[in-house]
Each structure stands twice: as structure tokens, then as C-alpha cells.
Design a protein around this nucleic acid. Structure first.
Length: 676
DNA sequence: TTTAGGG
DNA sequence: CCCTAAA
């Protein structure tokens, strides 16, 4: 969750649902980790994640604590308070290394809503700050301070014991982490809950953040020494009395940031490097899972969604035939269904809003939260914040796996690109950020029920999302800002999908506390797969294409995916050869226009590359050739044309525009391409 | 944006 | 196919 807007005046923070348990699935985790490593994650996101993690854990512990008293917190909320400084900045290593400091306060609460008698309030507030005073990873200091109100079995209620701990970790230049933490207990606290957030950016240089708090020892009331358990790679998993949160793959296949650490100067363009790394990685992963399709099939599949916008020449040929747009909504709500969930299904979340809203806009439902003493404060909880509509376009022939990746990317694009929170009150967007809650009317209990929030992409290019829910009323893209120009898709689709059970996210679906690497995406998709009809396929039109913006250059957003490999068919080769024979090499754009104008997946660069390989293929022995064999006849023509044009510098003779097959050859030569 | 080449 | 320096 990215919450960048600070709510002023007595608003003590935005409560957000537990941040997705740091990506549970390997894939998501990897993506997230990558995003972190590559500085594509805002500090606040990271913090939010940490906070969420703590929340979940505290909740978990609370439940376990209370388990004896058969208490299971039905829900909980976390609060991210925006007292951060650089939280909005991407957590680029370079920046971190330069002494940036980010911090955020969070508060988590576990409430025993329905479960009877017991008072609700297992709250935990904490302060997380990450700062780095010196350069590089050499010194990363992290602080986690937490205060907790714990459930006290002895008294059968939540005691107000305030436990505060603060720990400091820093990594010394020798690459080791020093947990020179100090614990601060406040009088009266009888138990300690330690937390630590260490940047274990070890020698390899990769960034790993761990929050290993909740060393609850409520039972023994004993000071539980802070156990610095080894940090198993299986982060995010709970282990005994401690939980860990980290960004590390289970498979230990993380990217190193050695480059950044050891060669701070080699900055050619960190961003670029990162970008590239991601691409490469993605591509490699892609290859691994790429279906073995036959040429014919391959030529029809295309996952290069993110690329379309990039191409200048976008013809809607094949696309209109094979691509589909999958519209999906509400897809990240309640990613990690915390423990059980009373009424936490996204269903309850999308509780339709007020009239005028077509039941589509509300992105979250706010609920008055048992207010406490502080009257001047408006308290409420947000069960869930919805991520704006996502339009995803993938060919029918793409694999589920690729679809998952696509979605992950889309989400990361949103989060990575930062987002704003739009506030909707009674269906209307509250645009004036300067008004107080009272002035806005958000203080009334009645209104709180109609208060909702929605994440909104900050940058227009980076918004692969569009709130389409309700075409009639302008997108609730609050930000008076440059709300995207993205055309709203026809609502028919929207409606159709609206209630698709597959598009919702039943809280109970997500559970798997275990190692199951199911993630939101996984779960969702697994669900989707069985009934492909849940995916509304819409013939893509040029128009819809525009809706699949897919963050482009937006700094940190997107993980561009490598285009699907689409081997040239003999027919295409023939066309290419023919065109080159006429136009010569060096005029790829013209070749493209002449022979592949409608093949939007073939760029002039592709053609140029193909020609290159064709020449090479024609040069090597047939035994060494791979892939669909190209008729020798064509290869011969390739060689001939290549020889000819390389000798006649196509460019120079620019005026060869003559008609087809009018290749002028002054000096007769055997090389002369045969143009019938 | 295109080309031309290296990866 | 990707990435980019050059043009």
C-alpha cells in the first residue's frame, strides 16, 4: 500500500489492511524484492510492508495468546502514519546510501469484533525508521520501536502495558551486522517484545530487511532475550516465537547489488542497469516457462503487452485477432488474508457505496472504529483499499504463468510508481487536500460509513490502471492532477466482470500459512483458470490498446517483459527477402512498410535482425541450422541480395524506388538478386 | 526515429 | 530479441 497523502488535522493516520504479507509466493516476493533492490519501491511502501508484517505477526501472536481463551481477532488494521520524510522517494540504494532517512510510524490493531466479551484492542504501534548515514551498504541503520498493548491472559483483557523497545542495527563496514540494539523498557512493562530491523546487506550487497519482532514471551513474563535467530531464507514465515520479514527469495536466487556496493562509480545508469537486469531476468524466467509452441502457434501469441505502446507503428491486425483484454478488478485487496477472517472477504469490502456510485467506485469501505477517548480524532478503519482497475491484455495463447507475471508487473507498476489515495465521501471525491476533516465532513460518524479510499497512480504514464468502473461519471481519479487520458473502456465489460466471482478475492482463499507459495496472483489465477470464461475476452481494438498503457518510461515502474519469441515463418522470410531484394538493406523502415505493414509485431529492427540471421543461416551448413528450415532457394536469394546490396550500398542509391522488381544493376554480376 | 551493430 | 550509440 502506498499512502502518500498525509491527512491533516487530528487524523491519526490511515488505517490500512494488513499489508500483504510480504509477498508470499516466490514470484511476488521476487518481484517485490527486486523492486526494493532496484529502488523501485518507495520507502513508505517498504515501511508499510514492514508494518503490515508486524501487524500480522502481532495479530498472529495475539491470536495465539488468546487462543487459550478462544479468541481470534477477526480483523485488524494497520496504520501508516505519514510522518516520513523521504518515504516517497524510491528506495534506491544510491539514495539510501547517501544518508537518506525514511521512517514511518505504524500502528496495528487487532480487534475482537464479534467475539464477545473481550475488549478489543491489541494494538501495537511502532516506529520504523531506516536510515543510512554513510555511503553504500556499509552502514545501514535501522530502528524499530514498538509499543504494544497486549492481551493479558491473567486479567482476561488487554492490559495497557506499554512495551517499548527499540533496537538498532547497523552494519559495520566489515560487512557484518551488529545488533547493537538497546532495549528500552518503560516502567511497568513486564514483557518485552523485541523488534529489529536489520539490513543485512552483506557482502554480496543485496538488501535484506528483516523485521523479527514478536518474540513474545507473554507467558513467562520473562524478559525474552532478543534472539537473533538465523534468518532462514524462508522469510515471511513464522518460526516459533519470532517472525521474520525479509526480501529474499526462497530459492536464494536473489539479485546481488554488488555492483552498486563495490563500484559506486560505475554508475552508468543504475536505473538502466537495474532495468536491464530485470529484463534479463524476466526473460530468462520467461523462457523457462514458455510453452513450446509450434511456429504457427507462436506466431499468434504475444505477451509483449508492455511493448505495444512503445512501438510507433501499431497496427491492429493480429492483435485484433488473437489478443484479448482481460479486465480484472479488485485484485489486490486483502492479499494475504490474515489469519482467518471474519468478514474480511473482499466482498465485504466492496460493499457497494452510495447510490450515485454505480456500486463501482468505492474502493474501500470505511468503518467507524470503536473510537477511544480521543474525541478530537476521527477514527475509522479501512477494510481494504482497492487498486484501481487494471486492464490487462494478453493473447489467448499465453500461459497462465505469463498472465500472472503480467499482473504482477502491472501491480508493481502501480505501487512502484507511487500512488495517491483518493478520498471519497458519499461517493464524491474530496479534492481539497487542505480542508480539515471536520470541514469536509469526515468527522461525522454517518459519513464515515460512506468514506472510502482508492489508490490512484501518481504518474499518468505509469498508470496501467483506469478506474473504469463507471464510465458515466468521470473517473474518480481524484487527483486534480493529470489524471490519465486513458479512455474509459466501455462499461459493458465492466459490468460483466463486476460480479465475476473469480475477480473477487475471497479472503479464505488466500490462506496457506504454510510454505505454500500461493500468492494472490496464484490463487486468483488458479481460480481463473478453470473457468476461462470468467475472463472476458474482448477483441482488442486500437482504442482499447490505448488503455493498456503499461507504464512506460515512468522511472520506477514496470518490469518490462521480453517479447514473446515469434520465429519468422517461411512466408515471412519470403516476404522479407523479396522486399530486401527491391529495397536493399539499410532501409528497414521501408521494408517494414512494404512487406510487414500489418504485422505489428515485426518492427523494422526485427526485420533487420532477421535479415542478419538469414544471412548467417545461409552462410552456415544446413546441419548447423536450427528452427524451421528455410528453403534453400530463399537462402540463396538472401546471399545474393546481401552480396549485391552490400556492394552497392543501398543508401547511396536511395532513388531505387522504382517499381518492384526493378533492381537496377549496372554491373552485371552473378550476385544480382533474382527478381522475377 | 532510424540505422547499424554488438550482445 | 534486446540495447544503444549515432546519425
Amino acid at each position: 500500500m502506498v499512502l502518500k497523502k498525509r491527512v491533516d488535522h487530528g487524523f491519526d493516520g490511515l488505517r490500512v489492511p494488513v499489508i500483504p504479507k510480504a509477498p508470499r509466493s516466490a514470484r511476488r516476493r521476487i518481484a517485490f524484492k527486486k523492486a526494493v533492490e532496484d529502488g523501485q519501491v518507495c520507502a513508505i511502501e517498504l515501511l508499510a510492508s514492514l508494518a503490515g508484517q508486524l501487524l500480522q505477526e502481532s495479530e498472529g501472536s495475539a491470536s495465539s495468546n488468546a487462543s487459550e481463551g478462544n479468541h481470534h481477532p477477526p480483523f485488524s488494521q494497520g496504520v501508516i502514519e505519514q510522518d516520513i520524510q523521504d518515504g516517497v522517494k524510491p528506495l534506491k540504494k544510491e539514495e539510501i546510501h547517501q544518508g537518506s532517512c525514511v521512517e514511518s510510524t505504524f500502528k496495528t490493531e487487532v480487534a475482537s469484533q464479534n467475539s464477545s466479551q473481550k475488549p478489543l484492542s491489541h494494538t501495537k504501534t511502532g516506529h520504523v525508521s531506516v536510515n543510512n548515514s554513510s555511503d553504500c551498504c556499509e552502514k545501514v541503520e535501522a530502528d524499530v520501536k514498538s509499543e504494544i498493548f497486549e492481551w493479558d491472559n491473567k486479567f482476561g483483557n488487554y492490559s495497557n502495558r506499554l512495551v517499548e523497545t527499540r533496537e538498532n542495527f547497523r552494519k559495520s563496514s566489515d560487512g557484518k551486522i551488529k545488533n547493537g540494539f538497546k532495549r528500552e523498557q518503560e516502567a511497568g512493562s513486564s514483557c518485552i517484545r523485541g523488534s529489529n530491523l536489520a539490513d543485512k546487506c552483506s557482502l554480496e550487497g543485496h538488501l535484506e530487511l528483516y523485521v523479527s519482532p514478536a518474540l513474545i514471551d507473554s507467558k513467562s513474563n520473562k524478559k525474552s532475550p532478543f534472539h537473533r535467530k538465523s534468518f532462514p531464507s524462508a522469510s515471511f514465515s513464522r518460526n516459533g516465537n519470532g517472525i521474520k520479514l525479509g526480501f529474499r527469495d526462497d530459492d536464494e536466487n536473489f539479485l546481488r547489488c554488488k555492483k552498486f556496493c563495490t563500484k559506486p562509480k560505475a554508475f552508468r545508469s543504475p536505473r538502466r542497469i537495474a532495468h536491464r537486469r530485470i529484463r534479463n531476468l524476466m526473460s530468462s524466467k520467461y523462457w523457462k516457462t514458455a510453452p513450446k509452441l509450434k511456429d504457427s502457434e507462436l506466431s499468434r501469441s504475444d505477451l509483449g503487452v508492455p511493448r505495444y505502446h512503445k512501438r510507433k507503428t501499431c497496427y491492429g491486425f493480429e492483435r485484433s485477432q488473437h489478443n484479448a483484454i482481460v479486465k480484472k478488478r479488485k485484485f489486490v485487496d486483502r492479499v494475504s488474508g490474515v489469519t482467518s477472517d471474519g468478514g474480511f472477504s473482499s466482498e465485504s469490502v466492496s460493499n457497494s457505496p452510495q447510490k450515485g456510485m454505480d456500486g463501482d467506485k468505492p474502493s474501500s469501505s470505511a468503518k467507524l472504529h470503536v473510537p477511544k477517548a480521543k474525541d478530537s480524532h476521527v477514527k475509522f478503519s479501512i477494510k481494504s483499499i482497492r487498486i484501481p482497475e487494471l486492464y490487462i491484455e494478453v493473447p489467448e495463447t499465453s500461459t497462465v504463468g505469463s498472465l500472472k507475471r503480467t499482473i504482477v508487473e502491472a501491480v508493481m507498476a502501480i505501487l512502484g510508481g507511487g500512488a495517491h489515495v483518493g478520498v471519497l465521501l458519499q461517493g464524491k471525491k474530496v479534492r481539497d487536500d487542505n480542508r480539515t476533516l471536520v470541514q469536509t465532513g469526515i468527522s461525522c460518524n454517518e459519513n464515515l460509513d460512506t468514506l472510502s479510499f482508492m489508490l490512484e497512480p501518481t504518474s499518468l504514464q505509469a498508470s496501467p490502471t483506469v478506474c473504469v468502473g463507471d464510465p458515466s461519471s468521470q473517473c474518480e481519479t481524484s487527483q486534480p492532477t493529470r489524471s490519465t487520458e486513458i479512455p474509459v473502456l466501455d462499461s459493458g465489460i465492466t459490468d460483466t466482470l463486476h460480479d465475476s466471482p473469480l475477480l473477487t478475492y475471497p479472503g479464505n482463499l488466500i490462506e496457506s500459512n504454510h510454505e505454500s507459495t500461493s500468492s494472490l496472483a496464484d490463487t486468483t489465477l488458479d481460480k481463473l483458470t478453470p473457468d476461462s470464461r470468467a475472463i472476458v475476452v474482448v477483441p482488442a481494438t486500437t482504442e482499447t490498446l490505448a488503455v493498456v498503457p503499461v507504464s512506460q518510461k515512468t522511472k520506477r515502474s514496470e518490469f518490462v517483459q521480453r517479447r514473446t519469441r515469434r520465429p519468422f515463418s517461411v512466408t515471412e522470410v519470403e516476404a522479407l527477402v523479396h522486399a530486401v531484394e527491391e529495397l536493399g538493406t539499410g532501409r528497414w523502415r521501408d521494408v517494414k512498410l512494404r512487406a510487414f505493414e500489418n504485422a505489428d509485431h515485426r518492427t523494422y529492427v526485427d526485420l533487420k535482425d532477421k535479415w542478419k540471421t538469414l544471412v548467417h543461416t545461409a552462410t552456415i551448413s544446413p546441419q548447423q541450422r536450427r528452427g524451421e528450415p528455410v528453403p534453400q532457394e530463399l537462402l540463396d536469394r538472401v546471399l545474393a541480395a546481401h552480396a549485391f546490396w552490400s556492394q552497392h550500398q543501398a543508401k547511396q542509391h536511395g532513388k531505387h524506388q522504382a517499381g518492384p522488381g526493378t533492381l537496377k544493376i549496372t554491373e552485371a554480376s552473378a550476385e544480382r538478386p533474382c527478381v522475377c
